[in-house]
Every structure is written in C-alpha cells, then in structure tokens.
Computed example of a mutant assay.
Amino acid sequence: MTERTSTLPGRLTERMSGAVSQVAAAGALIVIFVALSVVAPSFLSLDNLFNLASQTSVNAVMAVGVTLVIITAGIDLSVGSVAALSGVIGVMLMAQYGFNPLVGIVGGIAVGALAGLVNGLLVSVVGLPPFIATLGMLSVGRGLVLIVTGAVAVFGAPASFRLLGQGVIGAVPIPVLLIVLVAVLGHLVLTRTRLGRYAYVMGSNMEAARLSGVPVRKYTTAVYVLSGALAGLGGMIAASRINSGQPNFGEGLELDVIAAVVIGGASLFGGRGTVLGSLIGAFLVAVIRNGAVQLNIGTFYQNVLIGVIIWLAVWWDHYQRRKLGADAG
C-alpha cells in the first residue's frame, strides 16, 4: 500500500506536466492565430481557412496514429512515405483498374496498414529499435512509390474522389469532419480499450508490462498498424485534394506530424500523450506553415522554426522528467 501511495504524487505531477504543455500549445495557437489575423488580412479569408482546414486534416489524422506509437515509447518516421505510397496506390486502383472511389480509399488505407504491420513486426518480433525499423520503411516506401509510378504523377481518378478532401456537408468541410471522427475514435481507443491502457503501461515501463502479463508483441504491432492505416488515410485525403497521386508527396511530412504530437504534450520517452494535445499541436504547426506562406516566408525558414519548436518541446519534457525524478528521490 505504501509503495503504491508514494507513486501517486509522481503520477499527478506527470499528468500536470502534460496538461501544462497542452495549455501552452493552445495559448500559442490562439496568440499566433490572432497575430496573423492582424498582420495578414487574407489569413481570415474563407478560401484560406478552408485550405487551412484541409491541410490540417492530413497532419491531424496522421498525428493521432503517431500519438499511439509515441505513447509506447516508439517512433514512426515512415508516415510521410507511407502516405505517399497509399495515395498513389489508391489513385491507381481508381484510375488504372476502374475501381470506385470507396474501394480506392479503402485500398490506400490497407496499404498503409500493411506498411504499419511490417514496422510493428520489425519492432516487436525482430527486435529492431523503432527508429531503425521505421527509418528503413521511410526509404522502402519512398522507393516503392517511385518504382510503381516511374516518378510520374498518377491522374485519372473520378471527379467524385475529390469529395474526400474538398467536399462539404452543409458548411463544414468533410476533412474537418474526418478530423473529428478520427479524434473521437482515437480518444476512445486510448481511454476505453485495453490497447490504450496497455500502450501507456508499455511506454512507462516495457519490462514491467511484460512481466505483468501484457502481450507486448501483439499490442506493439497493433499501434504501428493503426499508425500506418491513419497515414494511409492521410495520404488519400491529400491525393483527393488534387485528385491525383503525387510520388513526391509527404517528403519531410514526418517532421510536422511528430512535432505536432510532441508540442501537444506527448513524451518521446513514452507513457504520456493525448489525442487532444496532438490535435492542438497539428493545428499550431499548420497555422504556422499557412501564416508563413501568407507572409511570404520561405519553406526553409519554416523548417528551421518547426525544428526549434521541437527542440523546445523535447527540452521541456526532459526538464519535467528530471524534476519529477528529483522530487521522487
């Protein structure tokens, strides 16, 4: 009883640290949004806000999957290339093989899930570090995209495919509805299922989880499959926005997705993270990118800024963990 009780302050402090990170990210999002509304009047135009929502949907959907992985103390560096491969294959199913858009979308998601399965097996069964396993998939996925397309964009998908990334229901863009749907399902997975509970346990202490009887291999594989599937969905949304499969899509996208998750309070050391925090991070990154375009700030400078934000977020997490360890000691 004493041992269990003594861990409660530490757990509370860790949760508070994650909450503080989320509040800070939300505050930064509000401040930047208001500032851009003042200095860039076109930022609040309906066309730009619709474009911002569509852009955010890709990163936000993928961030939910990466959140699951990072909670287990893993990493998925392959989401950008997996999204590109999924988008290309999905469009090819429609354009070259005559399948309807629904089959093409499901096919693209299945390609992402398959890539995630390979990542999960490499980590859980083969024993490769997540960094190495997913770095390899990043290269494999990008290579396969170029092989199947000949480095040429794939066109010819039916016009109805555009609805996924450009359609609206009432006044609400379908991509925004997809964000809500994926976020709700992701939250339920983390808070109401065995997979979510075990993900936090494995991220906090993998060996303790194994000794406690958690089927670590099964659930580690599962989180990578989900990450891959959501990367596939993100790739299909992106392909729908331009009604084509682009082999160069997603280059460097993993940077924005991981940044969103870390900015939102998830810990790269595992055991902490929420869907809400990752969504806040995704919107923050998207607003920064979009605002930079409105202010004619080049992509190179945007990448520098996002990199610095990642440094600060990881430093904050490391600082909080050291402080927590000192308090526990």
Rank of each mutant, 00 (worst) to 15 (best):
N119R: 04
V69N: 07
V66P: 04
Q96I: 02
G116N: 02
S139I: 14
L117D: 00
V140G: 07
L138K: 09
G104E: 12
L93M: 15
F99D: 05
V91C: 12
V111I: 15
I89W: 02
A113I: 10
L68G: 09
I70S: 01
F99E: 00
V58Y: 10
S54W: 01
A95K: 04
V58R: 03
G108L: 11
S57W: 03
T56M: 12
G141Y: 13
Q55A: 01
V125I: 14
G87Y: 07
I132Q: 01
G127N: 11
G90I: 04
V123E: 08
G98W: 13
A110Y: 02
I109N: 02
N100M: 09
V106Y: 00
V106Q: 03
S124Y: 02
A83F: 02
I75P: 03
A63N: 06
I89H: 00
V88P: 07
L135I: 11
A113R: 01
R142A: 14
V79P: 07
G87A: 06
G127Q: 04
A113E: 11
V88Q: 00
G108S: 09
L77R: 08
G116D: 07
S124T: 14
M137E: 05
G80Q: 08
G87I: 12
V82Q: 10
V64S: 03
A63D: 04
N59Q: 11
A110C: 13
A95I: 02
G74M: 09
L102H: 00
V66W: 06
F99K: 03
G107V: 08
L77T: 06
N51F: 12
A60R: 00
V64Y: 05
F131W: 06
V82E: 06
G141I: 12
L128R: 04
S86T: 04
G65N: 09
A84I: 09
I109L: 10
T56G: 05
V69C: 11
G116R: 09
Q55R: 14
G65D: 02
V126Q: 04
A84W: 13
G90H: 12
V64K: 06
G104L: 12
G112P: 10
N51S: 15
N59T: 14
P129W: 05
I70K: 03
G107D: 06
A113K: 05
V140Q: 10
L68A: 01
S86R: 10
V66C: 01
S78F: 04
F131V: 03
L52H: 10
L93G: 07
L102K: 00
G65C: 11
